[in-house]
Write a protein that binds this DNA or RNA. Structure first.
Lengths: 217, 217
DNA sequence: CGCGTACCGTACGGTACGGTACGCTACTTC
DNA sequence: GAAGTAGCGTACCGTACCGTACGGTACGCG
């Protein structure tokens, strides 16, 4: 038996992706009835195929988390030259993207599953979500911060600490409230407003020069 | 049948509190095996008693969350007169307390349970945790902020928005990382340092007068 | 002493779900 | 067209766990 592509790191086939999308759909609709039978029914495949492809239930969940993570990475290419307006714009982009991700129903459902499984030792779903969420965006934001520092626009000693402050200013209590079941309705306008406020606050804390005096709070 | 005190709002008896503490212990140790049998064994009581007292499994979990919540409220009395040093100290106290709570293993375990159940309609564990965590501390911090504004020390339009910024500066990514299974070791020193940094950043954003120029970052 | 009450320990029923086995169909390959 | 294979649908097994029932014990009370 050539134990199934997706159990390892390989990319899932189109059919397998359809199965994983079915899992995501069930997660969002009602994570309670996320059973192997339900997945097989939703994906119109047999349970035997599920087990052949993904090993066991944890393998299926892990593959689903990886699959969703692989779709989030819409990469921005770093601009080398960085003036104040560009820096603000880049930070705003990151903040908007991050808020859109964490407020999305898929992210909420996925984080709930990962958190629920984080108590047990096996099946490191929490680690995968962290690596592809919090840490992935950190690794993308920190170079921007450091470029801002190199351009004399920002002042900080530890880029990790600076990013964590940015993270807190952007997310605040939103994610925990959503995870605990509150239904915040944040539309695109609200997200952009929140992101803008966070960026202004971050620049107020870490900004060195005032690159663009005509900004709105 | 006089359906059991704890199913309603009444305070649990001493014996019932022991049962709820057993539940908390099991949650912290291994939330996977949080079964009615395990609770009965741990608490040295019969399952029949559990069902008589708490109705069903959700009732037991709800009573446990309420029980834990009832222990967190160590009330600070508000000081009426507020100078800069006192304001900073009060905020520091809140930040330290909050960080101690969310980094504690009981809080992590409880939040995991509540988040896992937040997907389903019945048994509003998430709402209870939110009400006694995030919103309870908000209701205690906002009067302090408003007193600070009344004393001319702070400037903000919306105390809720100001508190949410404070919340974000204090918590940053700590709670989500803990919930997702990362083991951050924050001792008392680290917590106080984090809290101090958050307070200074908050005052830098919202402070009006500079009450004490000799502070360390 | 007899009775009711409260509770412990344990055994049992029902069920849901993870995982496996098997029959069948359709498609590829020689 | 025969053989092999991938995969669907379904039936099945074992087990874990929720919820209940039952026997046994201690204690208060008339």
């Amino acid at each position: 038996m050539q134990a199934s592509a997706t159990a390892q790191q390989d990319a899932p086939s189109a059919r397998q992706q359809a199965v994983l999308d079915a899992v995501l759909g069930l997660m969002v609709e009602d994570s309670e009835q996320l059973t192997m039978d339900a997945v097989a029914r939703r994906a119109s495949c047999s349970k035997e195929t599920l087990y052949k492809w993904f090993g066991d239930r944890d393998g299926l969940l892990t593959a689903t988390v990886r699959w969703q993570a692989s779709r989030v990475h819409a990469g921005h290419d770093a601009a080398q030259v960085l003036d104040g307006a560009t820096l603000r714009e880049r930070l705003q982009d990151f903040a908007v993207t991050w808020l859109e991700v964490i407020t999305g129903p898929t992210s909420v459902a996925l984080n709930r599953i990962a958190i629920a499984h984080a108590g047990s030792r096996k099946s490191n779903l929490g680690g995968i979500v962290l690596a592809n969420g919090r840490f992935a965006i950190g690794e993308r934001v920190k170079p921007v911060l450091e470029a801002g520092r190199a351009a004399g626009l920002l002042a900080f000693a530890d880029s990790e600490a600076a990013f964590r402050t940015f993270f807190g200013l952007v997310g605040r209590d939103i994610q925990i409230r959503l995870l605990l079941g509150e239904t915040l309705d944040l539309d695109g306008v609200g997200i952009r407003r929140d992101a803008g406020r966070a960026v202004e606050q971050f620049l107020a804390l870490y900004g060195r020069a005032k690159p663009d005096p005509n900004h709105q709070t």
